[in-house]
Design a protein around this nucleic acid. Structure first.
Lengths: 151, 151
DNA sequence: GTTGACGTTTACGTAAACGTCAACTATATT
DNA sequence: AATATAGTTGACGTTTACGTAAACGTCAAC
């Protein structure tokens, strides 16, 4: 088990590739190429060019992966950019790490707060739904002129 | 215990009022008056006018309350408008009720899904934070600048 | 030699829910 | 009368994360 994969049809594993087109990455990550170009606009990736065509390295691909994960975790593109930016300078990655750590902790708190809000909203909604069901049941049995004034 | 309240300084309880100014309501609900006017733009409230001055009835106040609660529960203004719109037509409130009920159930599902996402993100973040801490710890012990436990 | 697929850049559009600012009016107080 | 206070309208600004259209280049295939 030295190589990652090597089946009969000489299918090249993506992890063995060195270059990627924008559409390849877009498909792989389930975003549109427009999105990837947008990230470039925002300075999150800087692929090489063959003329005008973008050529993405494995590193670029890695950055994209990080970006997308960041988005999933609810970070803003700006924050992600900072995390990414502070990463490349050689030497002490401590600055970047503490920054990222801090952002993570902030985000964690935000998410926990959000969860609390959502839980409250869910409880309220479940309550409301139950009441609505009651009203519906009674107004079904009652006749026309029965408006309960909920407002 | 007939009236709601009646203390010495004859302070009029808000629930006894019949009219409200925009700023009163804005303060009461913790929004700006611009926000309330915005809701009017969107057709969510339609206060009477004394000339050009808006005069809000208790009903309007009730609608505002509903709007704000709707927002807290994550409904769009559009949805809230529909719920509100379908209320006023006299007769069978069944249509409105079922609509609202449906929207509530939809929203409930959305919120539950969101909570799931958030929970996953939280788990991932907690994981990441732990790892970051490890990295920091090891790079701290290696280098000179030994600032152990981060703020 | 044309078709089609894919690429490029530039720039404006969208959605939500307001905020901000300017200019104006109306009423009340000094 | 002049100022203060509260209200009005309209238009444009803000934020985030893209979408969409225009107008064009390039390259291989048929």
């Amino acid at each position: 088990m030295i190589g990652k994969q090597m089946n009969a049809n000489t299918k090249i594993d993506k992890d063995d590739r060195v270059q990627f087109s924008i559409t390849e990455l877009a498909e792989e990550f389930g975003v549109t190429s427009r999105t990837i170009r947008f990230y470039e606009d925002k300075g999150l990736v800087n692929p090489e060019r063959d003329g005008t065509t973008r050529i993405y390295s494995r590193k670029d691909r890695g950055r994209l992966k990080i970006i997308l994960r960041g988005r999933r975790l609810g970070f803003s593109l700006q924050d992600i950019k900072k995390m990414l930016d502070m990463y490349s300078p050689k030497g002490e990655p401590t600055g970047q790490l503490t920054f990222t750590l801090q952002k993570c902790e902030e985000q964690l708190e935000k998410l926990i707060a959000q969860r609390t809000d959502i839980n409250e909203a869910i409880a309220e909604l479940e309550d409301g739904i139950a009441q609505l069901r009651e009203h519906l049941a009674s107004s079904d049995s009652a006749a026309d002129g029965c408006k309960k004034t909920i407002a």
